[in-house]
Design a protein around this nucleic acid. Structure first.
Length: 890
RNA sequence: GGGGGAUUAGCUCAGUUGGUUAGAGCGUCUGCUUGACAUGCAGAAGGUCACUGGUUCGAGUCCAGUAUCUCCCACCA
C-alpha cells in the first residue's frame, strides 16, 4: 500500500467500477425485503450545493446500510424540469442574442429548452456521482420524460373529471418579471422598510368633508372601487350610503362597511382595490364591487391607471407627487410591512386578478392528515407533525397554471365552433361534441410541483402496473430538508393516497439545512456558499460525507466551515495507516489471509485470549450493535460518532499499540491470533463505516484482500456483532471491560504523573503503585508485561504500603501511584497540589454525606443508587486518608 | 398575530427513559521526527449546563415564566 492515501485516484476509480458492475441496481425478483427511496429530484438547472451533499449523504448511508443487510434496495435518481427556473435560464441566454422567447415562438422556444437540457441538464447528475451516491442510474428519471408526462396528463384529466380541478378569476400572486402566476407557497414574505401614505378622499356632496385612508401601495389607487370602514366604527357611521371621490381620478366610489377593517389600524378607513389585493378582492365580492386592473402583466401601469407605460414603482412616486400637488396627501410615515417576493427571481410579486387553474385541496388533504394521525406515515422529528397538521388543516386551493412555455401543457381543449371545453390526455383531432376540427389547447403549463408530487409512483412506471411499482411502492423513507415539506412532501402524500390508494412512503425524515459558520443560510448573493466539489477536491468525498454526518443533528440546522472537513480527511488517513500497519504485519506471517476474516466466524484459541483482546472484541460487538441501532433510528450522527470513537480510540490508540508486542512475540500462535483479531475487527470497522465512507473502505477492503478483485464491500454483510455463544466462549464480560478501563486509567495516570513532573521521555523511573484491592494487585501483576509496553518500558512496582519519602502522588482507579524522585521534589508545589486535591475530594465527600444523611434520600431512592453513594463514600474516605498521609509526609 | 426550535468548554456540537466526578472534535498550552499515521502520538488547562421559580430524595434532563437568537405559518391596509 502507498504511504499516502490518494483519494482523488481512488474515488475516480471506484465510482465507475460500481456503476459498471451494476452494484447500485436491484431487481424486484432478486429477493430481499424492499427498501426503496426516491431522491428529491434537484432542478435540472441546478448545481450541487451543500444542501444536496447533506441530504444525499444521509440517504446514501441508509441505502448502503440496507443493501449490506441484504435488503433489496432501490434508490431512484432524477431531475426536475423546474419550469420557471429553466425557462429563465434559457431566456437569459436568448437575451444575449438579443432575442425574446416570443421572437422564436412557442414551439421553437420549447425545442430550444430541450436542447439546453440535453446539453447542460446532466451537470448535477454528474456532480452527484462525485458524492458517491449509490443511486440506481438505470432508473434515472426526468419529470418531463414521456412516461412521467403521460402520468401528469392522466392525473390532470382524472382530477378535472372528478371536479377537483377548476378554473376561475381570482387574485393570484403574480411575478411581473417571470410573467406568470405563482402558488401561495412560492411567495416569500420579507420585512420591507416602506411607508404608509395617508391620503384624503373627499366625501361626495359634502362641504369639504373627507376621509383619510392609509396605504402602502398608492400606485393601486386608480384601481380603487370603494373605501371600507368597520360597521361598528362610530366615527364613520354617518357615511352610510355616501360616496367618496377618488383623488386624481375624480370618480365617485362607495363607502362600504365590512368587518375586515380593523378600527385601530391607521385611520380605520381602507381603500379597496379588488383587482390588486386578495383581501380587497374578498371585500369586493361581498359588496359586488367592480374590479379595475390598472397594471399590465409585466409590472407596468396600463391605460386605466392614467399612468400608462410607467413602471409600478415609478408610478408610486409619481402618484405620491401628484397627490401632494393636489393637496390630498396628509402625511407619510415610515412603516415596516411584509412584502412578497418571487421565490425564483426575488422580484416583488403583485396580487393580480387573473384566470387560473386550481386544485381543490381539502378533499385531497384529508387522507394524508389521517395517515399521519394513525401513524401510517411517520414524520420525524415528530415536532414537524404539528407544523404539518396546521398547514394541512388550513390548506388553500393550489394555483397550478403558469403562464410560461416550459413544462407540462395543460391538457384542456376548447372547440372554436361550439365552445365545448374538455380535458384529454392526448391531443384530440376533433371536438367530441360537434366534431369540429378547430380546437384550441389551453396555452398555460402546469406548476412544476404538479409533476413532482407524483414522483414516488411515476418513477416506477405508473400508470402502467409494473413489477417495480408492485415491489417498491410504497417506498420506505423520504429524506429531505423541511423547507419543501409543503411544496412537495405533503402533496406527495395527497397524490399517493388519491391515485395509488396507498402512502408514497412510510417515513418522512426531515433534516436541517446547512448554514455558514455564522449561522446564515448559504446563498449566492451572500457569497457564503461552500462548494461540495471544492471540498471533494480538497479533502475527498469520503471526508465530506463523514464530516457532514458527524456534525449533523436531525434536530437542528448544521453550521459548517471548511475546517470541519479535516475531521473526515484525517479519519480516512488514520484508517489508511492502520491498514498499512496490518498489511506490513500480515506479510510477516506466511499464509495469512484477510479473506479469512472478511466476516463470518472468528476461530480463536480461548487459552491465548487476554483481557485486552476481550476488551476489543466486546467493544467491537457493542459498536456493531450501536451502529445498527443508530441507523435504524435514523441517528446518522450517533452512528458516525460510535464508529469514529471505536476505530480511533479503541482500535488504533489502544489495541494497535498493545498488539505491537504480540505481533513481534516469538511464539507463532500468539502472533497469528493477534493478527487474526486485528484483521477480524478491522474488517468489521471497514464494513461498519462503508455507508459513511464508501471509497476508502472499498479501496482498503481490496488492498488488504478481504475480497476477490471482482467483489465489493458494498455487498459484504453489515456486521451485527457476536452471538451469545461466542460472547460466553471468549469470556467477553462486563468485568473484563471494567478491568481494562481501570488499566487504561492507570496507564494514562502514570503518563500524566511523569508529564507533570517534567520527566524527559527517555528517563526511566520506576513507578510505585499501591493497589486499591488485592484482586487488582494480582491481576495487574499478571499484566506487568503489557503495562510495561504501554508505558514504554516503564515498569510499575506493586507495593504493599505507601512509600515513606515525599514524592508526587496520583490517585487512580487502580490505586495510589507514586513517582520516586529523590531530592527532586518541590515540597511547596506538591503540598499545594495535594491541598487542592484534598479540597476537591472533601467537597465530593461532603456532598455524598449530605445525601446519605438525608432521611428522605435513604428512604426513597432506589437501593442501587444508595449503594452507589455508600461505595463512593468508602472510596472517597480511603482516598482522602491516603492524601492526608502524603500531606503529612511532606 | 399564531406556532416551532435553540441557549452546555474560546468555537461547533453530543448528552437516549431524571441517579457516581457533564463528554467529543476544533482551537489553546506542554512534551514528543516512537518502524502504521506530524492529516500523527502522549499529556494539560478550560463549564454556576441562558436566567428565575417549581416538581422530586435527587434536575443539563421534567414543568412554568423571563431574556436573547432563530425558523415556519398568517389577509392589518
Amino acid at each position: 500500500m502507498d504511504k499516502n492515501y490518494d483519494p482523488k485516484a481512488v474515488e475516480a476509480k471506484w465510482y465507475p467500477w460500481w456503476e459498471q458492475h451494476g452494484c447500485f441496481h436491484d431487481e424486484p425478483g432478486r429477493g430481499g425485503a424492499p427498501y426503496a427511496v426516491v431522491i428529491p429530484p434537484p432542478n435540472v438547472t441546478g448545481i450541487l450545493h451543500m444542501g444536496h451533499a447533506l441530504n444525499q449523504t444521509i440517504q446514501d448511508v441508509l441505502v448502503r446500510w440496507h443493501r449490506m443487510r441484504g435488503d433489496n434496495t432501490c434508490w431512484v435518481p432524477g431531475t426536475d424540469h423546474a419550469g420557471i427556473a429553466t425557462q429563465n435560464v434559457v431566456e437569459k441566454a436568448l437575451r444575449k442574442e438579443g432575442k425574446r422567447r416570443q421572437d422564436l415562438g412557442r414551439e421553437a422556444f420549447v425545442e430550444r429548452v430541450w436542447e439546453w437540457k440535453r446539453q447542460y441538464g446532466g451537470t448535477i447528475v454528474h456532480q452527484q456521482r462525485k458524492l458517491g451516491n449509490s443511486t440506481d442510474w438505470q432508473r434515472e428519471r426526468f419529470t418531463m420524460d414521456e412516461g412521467l408526462s403521460a402520468a401528469v396528463a392522466k392525473v390532470f384529466c382524472d382530477l378535472y373529471d372528478e371536479g377537483l380541478i377548476y378554473r376561475g378569476n381570482y387574485i393570484v400572486n403574480w411575478c411581473p418579471r417571470c410573467g406568470t402566476a405563482l402558488a401561495d407557497d412560492e411567495v416569500e414574505h420579507e420585512p420591507n422598510e416602506g411607508y404608509l401614505w395617508y391620503v384624503r378622499y373627499p366625501v361626495a356632496g359634502s362641504e369639504g368633508e373627507f376621509v383619510t385612508v392609509a396605504t402602502t401601495r398608492p400606485e393601486t389607487l386608480p384601481g380603487d372601487t370603494a373605501v371600507a370602514v368597520n360597521p361598528s366604527d362610530a366615527r364613520y357611521a354617518h357615511l352610510k350610503g355616501k360616496k367618496v371621490i377618488l383623488p386624481l381620478v375624480g370618480k365617485e366610489i362607495p363607502v362600504v362597511f365590512d368587518d375586515y377593517v380593523e378600527k385601530d389600524f391607521g385611520t380605520g378607513v381602507v381603500k379597496i382595490t379588488p383587482a390588486h389585493d386578495a383581501n380587497d378582492f374578498a371585500v369586493g365580492q361581498r359588496h359586488s364591487l367592480p374590479q379595475v386592473d390598472v397594471m399590465n402583466g409585466d409590472g407596468t401601469m396600463n391605460a386605466l391607471s392614467g399612468y400608462e407605460g410607467m413602471d409600478r414603482f415609478a408610478c408610486r412616486e409619481a402618484i405620491v407627487k401628484d397627490l401632494e400637488k393636489g393637496g390630498y396627501l396628509v402625511k407619510v410615515e415610515p412603516y415596516q410591512n411584509q412584502v412578497g417576493h418571487c421565490y425564483r427571481c426575488h422580484t416583488v410579486v403583485d396580487s393580480r386578478l387573473s384566470k387560473q387553474w386550481f386544485v381543490r385541496m381539502k378533499p385531497l388533504a384529508q387522507p394524508a392528515i389521517e395517515a399521519v394521525r394513525k401513524g401510517e406515515i411517520a414524520i420525524q422529528p415528530k415536532r414537524w407533525e404539528s407544523v404539518f397538521f396546521n398547514w394541512m388543516e388550513n390548506i388553500r386551493d393550489w394555483c397550478i397554471s403558469r403562464q410560461i412555455w416550459w413544462g407540462h401543457r395543460i391538457p384542456v381543449y376548447t372547440c372554436r365552433a361550439c365552445g365545448h371545453e374538455w380535458a384529454a390526455p392526448e391531443k384530440p383531432a376533433a371536438c367530441p361534441t360537434c366534431g369540429a376540427a378547430a380546437i384550441d389547447q389551453d396555452p398555460d403549463v402546469l406548476d412544476t410541483w404538479f409533476s413532482s408530487w407524483l414522483w414516488p409512483f411515476t418513477v416506477f412506471g405508473w400508470p402502467k402496473q409494473t413489477a417495480d411499482l408492485a415491489f417498491y411502492y410504497p417506498t420506505a423513507d423520504l429524506i429531505t430538508a423541511a423547507d419543501i415539506l409543503f411544496f412537495w412532501v405533503a402533496r406527495m402524500m395527497m397524490a399517493g393516497y388519491h391515485f395509488m390508494g396507498k402512502p408514497p412512503f412510510k417515513n418522512v425524515i426531515l433534516h436541517g439545512i446547512v448554514r455558514d459558520a455564522q449561522g446564515r443560510k448559504m446563498s449566492k448573493s451572500l457569497g457564503n456558499s461552500l462548494d461540495p466539489l471544492e471540498i471533494i477536491e480538497k479533502y475527498s468525498a469520503d471526508a465530506l460525507r463523514f464530516s457532514l454526518a458527524l456534525i449533523t443533528s436531525m434536530e437542528t440546522d448544521t453550521k459548517v466551515d471548511m475546517g470541519k472537513f479535516e475531521i473526515g480527511r484525517n479519519f480516512g488517513t488514520k484508517l489508511w495507516n492502520a491498514a498499512r500497519f496490518l498489511q506490513m504485519n500480515a506479510e510477516k506471517l506466511p499464509g495469512f489471509s484477510f479473506a479469512d476474516h472478511a466476516g463470518g466466524g472468528l476461530a480463536l484459541d480461548p487459552a491465548l485470549l487476554r483481557d485486552d483482546d476481550r476488551h476489543l472484541l466486546l467493544k467491537a460487538h457493542r459498536t456493531c450493535a450501536a451502529l445498527n441501532a443508530a441507523l435504524a433510528k435514523y441517528r446518522i450522527q450517533d452512528g458516525a460518532l460510535a464508529i469514529y470513537d471505536f476505530a480511533w480510540t479503541d482500535f488504533c490508540d489502544w489495541y494497535l499499540e498493545y498488539a505491537k508486542a504480540d505481533l513481534n512475540a516469538p511464539d507463532a500462535p500468539r502472533r497469528r491470533q493477534t493478527l487474526a483479531i486485528l484483521a477480524h475487527v478491522y474488517g468489521q470497522i471497514l464494513r461498519l463505516l462503508h455507508p459513511y465512507m464508501p471509497f476508502v473502505t472499498e479501496e482498503i477492503w481490496h488492498q488488504l484482500g478481504y475480497c476477490a478483485e471482482d467483489a465489493t464491500i458494498m455487498r459484504a454483510p453489515y456486521p451485527t456483532g457476536c452471538d451469545d455463544a461466542h460472547l460466553a466462549a471468549w469470556g467477553l464480560t462486563e468485568d473484563v471491560l471494567a478491568y481494562v478501563e481501570t488499566k487504561r486509567d492507570l496507564i494514562t495516570g502514570i503518563r500524566a504523573l511523569r508529564a507533570e513532573a517534567g520527566l524527559p521521555p527517555a528517563l526511566n523511573v520506576r513507578v510505585l503503585l499501591h493497589p486499591a484491592t488485592d484482586a487488582l494487585r494480582e491481576r495487574l501483576a499478571r499484566d506487568a508485561d503489557t503495562l510495561k509496553t504501554a508505558l514504554r518500558a516503564q515498569a510499575i512496582d506493586l507495593v504493599d504500603a505507601p512509600p515513606a519519602a515525599p514524592m508526587p502522588t496520583k490517585l487512580l482507579r487502580a490505586g495510589a501511584a507514586y513517582l520516586p524522585l529523590d531530592g527532586l521534589v518541590d515540597a511547596k508545589a506538591e503540598a499545594d497540589k495535594l491541598d487542592k486535591e484534598i479540597a476537591k475530594l472533601q467537597g465530593f465527600l461532603d456532598g455524598v454525606n449530605a445525601k446519605l444523611n438525608n432521611q428522605a434520600f435513604v428512604s426513597k431512592a432506589p437501593a442501587p443508587i444508595i449503594q452507589n453513594q455508600r461505595d463512593r463514600k468508602a472510596e472517597l474516605e480511603a482516598q482522602l486518608a491516603t492524601l492526608h498521609a502524603r500531606r503529612a509526609a511532606l
